[in-house]
Design a protein around this nucleic acid. Structure first.
Lengths: 142, 142
DNA sequence: TTATATGCAAAGCTTTTGCGCTGGC
DNA sequence: GCCAGCGCAAAAGCTTTGCATATAA
């Protein structure tokens, strides 16, 4: 918790003021490779600094998202989940049985998406692709 | 407003009890080809029956969604939007400048999505693909 | 020092729910 | 007549915000 996290470095690149709470929240988000919701981020942050309030977590993840260093996801649960902007873009496959989240990349899909936007006269600035699946019967379970 | 809407027929097929409010909400959702949120559905329903409450609209769209005759969308506005389950599946391109919603279909993407799920040992039961774009000429100007 | 960030609590928004009454079947 | 559905209002769940204080630069 003393070394600056990858996210903290990105904050500095963006010229964000690095306060105590922001450093802790950045560290927490860098450390975990899952997709925590705000309450989970807060719970983890409080372990490092028990004074951090949930309001600050909300303000900070919004700030980080607007700075382009965090991605917000909504997996249809009525609340947001966050992850570091990944080095390489990926989409998500959600296991409806276990709620596991599997990340994947597909060049073809990325290319076709751009083409579709172009076809309608748009420049694609963002997209969201989520697959919802159940374990196939005839393959081994994880 | 006296003829049964397409949605009302689908309700009957599913064995849902057709009350006054449900008939009105089904008609309203069948009549408009856009993607109204719950408040808009309610506003339109009230024109036909001023006693319909927003609670009933919430209950009804949830019922319809669970019956598989309505699709719920979340276009990152913090509230749900609904549309009739379409005759042919389509995805959405959202114009970030005007909030226009453009529907499109792409066979290739559908096929690749199934393949990806398979590759990870899943059967794809649902997916969500949204493209967010800005008009191409605008992006040139900036 | 001075602007910005924080903590706390209150409020905002969308959505759900408890309850007594209404109305389809 | 019964039981599901309805309207109303209250509440739940997530998120934002006003304000006084604390802190980074």
């Amino acid at each position: 918790m003393s070394l600056p996290s990858r996210l903290e470095k990105m904050c500095l690149d963006k010229g964000l003021q690095m306060t105590g709470p922001r450093r802790v929240i950045a560290a927490v988000l860098s450390e975990f490779a899952d997709h925590p919701d705000v309450e989970q981020v807060h719970q983890r942050a409080v372990l490092l600094d028990k004074n951090i309030s949930i309001a600050t977590v909300y303000r900070t993840v919004r700030l980080f998202e607007e700075a382009g260093i965090l991605e917000r996801h909504d997996f249809r649960e009525g609340k947001a989940r966050y992850e570091e902007v990944p080095l390489q873009h990926h989409d998500h496959l959600i296991d409806l049985k276990t709620n596991a989240i599997i990340e994947f990349q597909d060049e073809q899909i990325e290319r076709i998406q751009k083409e579709i936007a172009q076809k309608f006269g748009y420049t694609s600035v963002d997209h969201r692709l989520e697959l919802y699946g159940i374990p196939a019967e005839n393959s081994e379970k994880k």
